[in-house]
């Protein structure tokens, strides 16, 4: 049973008569614990696909099922709650909350849910990502690599069903990129975390258990 299952995803923009087809009938499935990389050039529709898989956007057609729940049937409120419990995000531009320190950023999704914080697990993630000495710092006091590590920790803290990463190394230098990718791979293995990552970099794709190629809104290669 796949943890993530998408069928016939379409996303059209603009006029109905002559729409821009960002996604045009994409279907894929991801098994639990898998590290999948979606590769595509700029404008190929990979970010749109990731946003729809994560419930940040709604498709024009098709369905997404995460952990047995169909996202399209949920209201915005239900979707948000589902997201904070089941989906973790890592963005190219980190997207940390500037008014919260590192620790607060990490535990934010748990606190928003009102759940007690699983401190041993959180501390384990912090240690694994090398953030022990940075817990009280604000995002503005961190380097790009450090911010991205905080973003990964935040994405993992709720033990989500899937972790979606949108070009997580896009803003980082090559050495830091290697560190971040290593950490992503390590967490995927160590915490048996399902990861779906998009990138335009074929080299990065080498880390993946499986690579899917996307072009002009369609899957053109790899095992979807």
């Amino acid at each position: 049973m796949p943890i993530l299952f998408a069928r016939g995803l379409k996303k059209y923009y603009g006029r109905e008569s002559d729409p821009v087809r960002a996604l045009d009938g994409v279907s894929l499935s991801v098994e639990e614990g898998e590290f999948v990389v979606i590769v595509g050039q700029s404008g190929s529709g990979k970010s749109t696909l990731l946003h729809i898989l994560g419930g940040l956007d709604r498709p024009t057609g098709g369905t997404v099922t995460v952990d047995g729940r169909v996202l399209g049937k949920m209201t915005d409120e239900q979707l948000t709650v589902f997201r904070r419990r089941n989906i973790g995000f890592v963005f190219q531009s980190y997207n940390l909350v500037p008014i919260l320190d590192v620790y607060e950023n990490i535990v934010l999704p748990v606190e928003l849910d009102g759940d007690p914080i699983d401190r041993p697990f959180v501390e384990g993630v912090i240690d694994a990502l090398g953030l022990r000495g940075l817990k009280k710092r604000l995002p503005s006091m961190l380097s790009g690599g450090q911010q991205q590590r905080v973003a990964i920790a935040r994405a993992m803290v709720t033990k989500p069903a899937i972790l979606l990463a949108d070009e997580p190394t896009g803003n980082l230098d090559s050495r830091t990129s290697q560190d971040v990718l290593g950490l992503l791979k390590m967490t995927s293995t160590r915490f048996h975390q399902t990861v779906v990552m998009i990138t335009h970099n074929e080299q990065i794709a080498q880390l993946a258990d499986r690579v899917i190629h996307i072009e002009d809104g369609r899957i053109v290669g790899g095992e979807a």
Binding site: T80, V81, R83, F89, N95, V97, L112, D113
Partner: peptide, 9 residues
């Protein structure tokens, strides 16, 4: 981002 990580509206 806050909505993204689970803050409802």
């Amino acid at each position: 981002v806050l909505e993204c990580v689970g803050m409802v509206r």
